[in-house]
Structures are given as C-alpha cells and as structure tokens.
Computed example of a mutant assay.
Amino acid sequence: MEEELFTSQEQIIEALVYGLIFLVLVTLGLILFFYYSRKKIIEKEIEKINIKLDYQERIHQTTIKVQEAERHRISQDLHDAISSKLNIISLTTHVLIEDQTMSTKNKEALKHILDITNKTLENSRVIAHKLMPPILDKFGLKEALEELFEEFTSNSSLKIEQNIVIDCIKKEDELHIFRIIQELINNSLVHGKATILKLDINKKGDFLKLKYEDNGIGFNTNDASKKSGIGLQNIKSRVAILNGIIEVSSTKNKGSLFSIKFRNYD
C-alpha cells in the first residue's frame, strides 16, 4: 500500500515537473514570438520611415534642380528682355536731354526718368547676378568664388582664408559646389556670427575634398540632425545630387567644420 502511494506521488511530481517544463517552454515560445513579431513591426516601421525620407529627399533634390533651371530662365529674361529695353529707354532719354529745343522743365523731368531708369537697370542686374552669376558660366568656378568672397569681405571685417585647387572640377558640378559654398558662408555669417572662414578644396585620390571651417558660435549637431534648417538641408541635398558624403562637426562657441567628399574624380 505504501509502495503504491509512493509510486503515485512520484507520478504526480513527475507530471508537475513536466507540466512546469511545458509551461516554461510555452511561455518562452510566446516571449520569443512577441519579441520577433515586435522586431519585425519595428523593422517595417523603420523601412517605411526610410522610404518616406528617401522620397522626401528625392523631391527636395528635384526641387533644387527645377529652381536652378527657373533661376537661369528668369536671369536670362531679365538680361534679354528687361535690361535691353531699359537700355533703349536710357539711350533715348539721353538723346532727348541733348535736344537744344527742349525746355529746362522738360529736361529736368527727363533727367528724373533717366535716374529712375538707371537705378532700375542696376537693380535688375543685381537680381540677375544673384539668380545666376554670369561669371560662373563665362570664367568658371574659381573666378566666381573670388567674386563671391569679395562681395562678403569688401564691406565687413570678415576674413576668408582659402586654398583652392579646382582644375579637376567637372563643369556640370560647378554650380552646385558654388551654391554649397555660398550657403555655408551665409550660414556662418547669419547664424554662426563668424568673423574668420577657412576653405580648402583639393583632390585626394579619386575624391574631390572640400573642407570648410568657421570660428562662429557653433550649434548642436544632434539637434541639427533631427531638424535641419533650410540652408543645411539644401547643402545636404546638393551634396547628395553630386553623390558626395558630408560630415558635420560643431561645438558651442568653438565654430563649425564641414568635410565634404565628392566621388568619381579619378
């Protein structure tokens, strides 16, 4: 009787052990199931976000290309249509002013018209120049950059140190590189309050390297990566258009450093 009772207890204990093992395995299985299910859901969400970001970046790059084409068209229209007609008005007004039969009162009115015409002509030239610097098309990137530096330094205490070797730059890349540097300088002055800028462009292996540094107030790169300003986003998009790589480092009150590499310059 006692032996049967002992055997019965052993069976109960054995059943409990197997039951406990089964419960542990089921629990472990459920944990693994939910873990991998959650992981897959997260991966899918990340994939969706990346697709969305890639799509937004492509839209931004396309927008930049369209903007440049439109800038070129408007600049050309300003030069060919408006500026040429204003020049005709200016020449005609000069002829009328020289007319000896013209009364003094009428000459004064014509001089006023001439003054307004010349100012409008100059404004249209400035606007056309900002939209599409003609020196870039005519003489290339180096001369365009020198003119850009002159514009920024002529009426300020800003200092720009440069070491530029750009004989290898492809013609089709020049406008984007010009805009990148232009945007970098604007950001340094407007947001960084910088007084000294350093620009180095040269070829290293099959890469074209652009290194830009300022002594401005700097910024938090983590915050910038979460929500880039329009200027920084434009820079990144133009770098992407040229299949480049950009690295940004900055410290509060210690300036900013931008290192950009452009591929396929072998």
Rank of each mutant, 00 (worst) to 15 (best):
I246G: 01
K204D: 11
N215H: 08
E213H: 10
V239W: 14
N186A: 11
N187F: 11
I180T: 07
N253M: 14
I246F: 10
G229V: 09
E247A: 08
I245P: 02
S188F: 04
D214P: 05
F219V: 00
K211N: 15
Y212T: 00
T195D: 08
N186I: 14
L199Q: 05
N243K: 12
S250E: 02
A194F: 01
K227M: 09
K209V: 15
F219H: 01
Q182W: 09
L232F: 03
K193T: 15
R179N: 14
S250F: 03
Q162G: 05
Q233M: 09
D200C: 03
I181G: 05
N163K: 10
S188E: 01
L175P: 00
H176E: 14
K254N: 15
K203R: 14
F178K: 01
A240L: 12
E247Q: 10
T251R: 08
S228E: 07
F219G: 02
I196Y: 05
S228I: 00
N186H: 13
K236H: 03
K171Y: 10
K236P: 00
G216Q: 02
V165Y: 04
K254I: 04
N243R: 06
I230D: 08
N220G: 07
L175R: 13
K227S: 09
K252N: 11
N222Y: 06
I169G: 02
N234G: 12
I164F: 04
R179D: 11
D223A: 04
L175C: 03
K227R: 09
S225K: 11
N220S: 14
E174Y: 05
G229D: 05
C168P: 00
D167A: 15
A240Y: 11
I245H: 11
E213G: 00
G218S: 05
K198P: 06
N186T: 13
G255P: 02
K226R: 10
G216A: 08
Y212H: 06
L184N: 00
A224K: 04
K254A: 12
N253A: 07
D167T: 14
S250I: 01
V248D: 03
I217H: 03
N222G: 03
I241W: 14
G244A: 06
I241V: 14
K193L: 15
K209L: 15
R238W: 12
K198N: 15
F178S: 07
I181N: 02
L199A: 06
L210H: 09
S157V: 08
